[in-house]
């Protein structure tokens, strides 16, 4: 009798697992080119294309969800979605709480963007960064005055209106802005922080992690990942 019960439970579990093949992908939707909301109101960008391809290769159905950056990890561990693809750099402190797949971008350089022709004092000036990013931690420990904003958009605004001398953010994010706005230009040298961007998953989801790891590897192997990186101008290829 007991065996029968366990068998039924296992069958139910297996059925549940087979059902739960819809993977919910969490993202921020405010960090082009990694992810943003397009004119039609859909999630778009490098990670959207990459994620869809990964899901296809892993044989999963994927659904995109947007979530505020501040609570993106608590909502993952709480099970509101299953993965994070939000330009999230792999860091030790994040790795303690969630798991990462292998990185799907090279360790991306962060860069300082300032008004064209401005002299910026990186150790003593006022540097803007988005709250809760690796760049914010970097500025806090560099000696410069850190000015924190809730969204990336506001950090750029702070440089435009002179509140901050420069903004520190992922180079890939700043690149299109610098190209568009003649008043803004890169200053100083790039800073290497973080270990590249990876997909975040719950630590208990080892199986899903393996699937995505394999899918990322296959995209690295056949060069399709490099093609995407070049297309979206994310940075160095593999």
């Amino acid at each position: 009798m007991k065996h029968l019960l366990i068998a039924t439970a296992l069958a139910a579990l297996a059925a549940g697992a087979a059902q739960a093949q819809t993977v919910r992908m969490g993202t921020e939707g405010a960090y082009p080119p990694y992810n943003y909301i397009d004119d039609a109101g859909q999630v778009a960008g490098f990670e959207r294309e990459l994620g869809d391809e990964l899901c296809k290769r892993a044989g999963l159905t994927c659904e995109w969800v947007t979530n505020d950056w501040d609570s993106i990890i608590p909502n993952l561990v709480s099970g509101n979605y299953d993965t994070i693809m939000a330009g999230m750099s792999i860091t030790d402190e994040r790795d303690e709480v969630i798991d990462f797949t292998q990185n799907y971008t090279q360790p991306d350089p962060s860069a300082y963007l300032a008004k064209a022709g401005a002299e910026v004092d990186f150790a003593g000036g006022v540097i803007a960064a988005q709250t809760g990013t690796i760049q914010a931690s970097h500025v806090a420990s560099s000696g410069a005055t850190l000015l924190e904003f809730a969204t990336p958009e506001e950090t750029i605004g702070a440089v435009r209106n002179g509140e901050a001398d420069a903004v520190l953010a992922d180079r890939a994010y700043l690149e299109p802005i610098a190209a568009e706005d003649a008043e803004l230009d890169f200053v100083g040298e790039d800073v290497l922080i973080g270990g590249g961007v990876g997909m975040g998953l719950r630590e208990s989801d080892a199986e899903l992690k393996e699937k995505f790891n394999a899918a990322i590897q296959s995209m690295k192997d056949d060069g399709s990942l490099n093609a995407l990186i070049t297309k979206w101008e994310i940075g160095a290829t593999f």
């Binding site: 501040d70 608590p74 709480v97 803007a128 904003f149 506001e154």
Partner: peptide, 28 residues
Amino acid sequence: FFSGFPATQQMGDALYYANYFADKTFNP
């Protein structure tokens, strides 16, 4: 500090620090 003004040198109000810890420990 949550939605209005930027925080300088990580000097903020109670919610700012609560947010900081929630962000670092990932446990709200």
